[in-house]
Amino acid sequence: MRIGPGEMKSAFAAVISRDLSLAVRQGGNIGTAIGFFLTVIVLLPLGLGPDQQLLQRIAPGALWIALLLSVLLSADRLYQTDHDDGSLEIMALSSTPLEVVVLAKASVHWLTSGLPLAIAAPVLGFLLNLDTALILPLGIAMVTGSLALSLLASLGAAITVGLRQGGLLVSLLVLPLYVPVMIFGVLASSGAQSGIDNSGTALIILVAIVLAALVVTPFASAAALRSYMR
């Protein structure tokens, strides 16, 4: 059965509003992500020593590592409840393409983990003596990059949805995919810290990575989910 773009859009919106209200009602995911983020940021100076210059130098990279780990932590159960209670199968049988459902669920994950963290990061950056000139580029890079992180994490979650030891496998599968996002995310947030200011170019490449993830992950995730349902 083929459906028009209008209906597809409304199905997309329906999944988003359902999952968003679920996330807000439970409140667990957003809290976990921010709590974990804060933990990493507080542990870093305690582990590395309070040297202000050192902290300033590593601040963008450290914030990115914290972002990446928090997103990964909240992602491995992305499809689990819907898979276990069978609602994923109903969504797959409906006329809406599973790719649209996947995209909606990844967007909700971004709205409830990547986006709040990207907004919180510059504020928490004060704890790491983040250069104030970097607050805006860091925020922009994180809002953009975390979208790719959510998409890739949702792919990892879809690949391991039917497995008992899924959580362990997600990190191994997603880590290689996170390498480019990490590199260009940090470069886009570091300004001229490493000598030449490449942050503009890095941001453009980061956007390209997000677009590539946007094209590849919905199809790959939907294909993986379908093979688990068969």
């Binding site: 290689p176 390498v179 480019p180 000598g195 030449i196 590539a212």
Partner: peptide
């Protein structure tokens, strides 16, 4: 599932190569 992993990984390899080269040169 493994085929999906292999294909996504294969797309990822040149992107990783490109980004790591860039990162290392900086």
């Amino acid at each position: 599932i493994a085929a999906i992993v292999a294909i996504v990984g294969f797309i990822n390899v040149p992107i990783v190569k490109f980004s790591v080269d860039w990162w290392y040169s900086l």
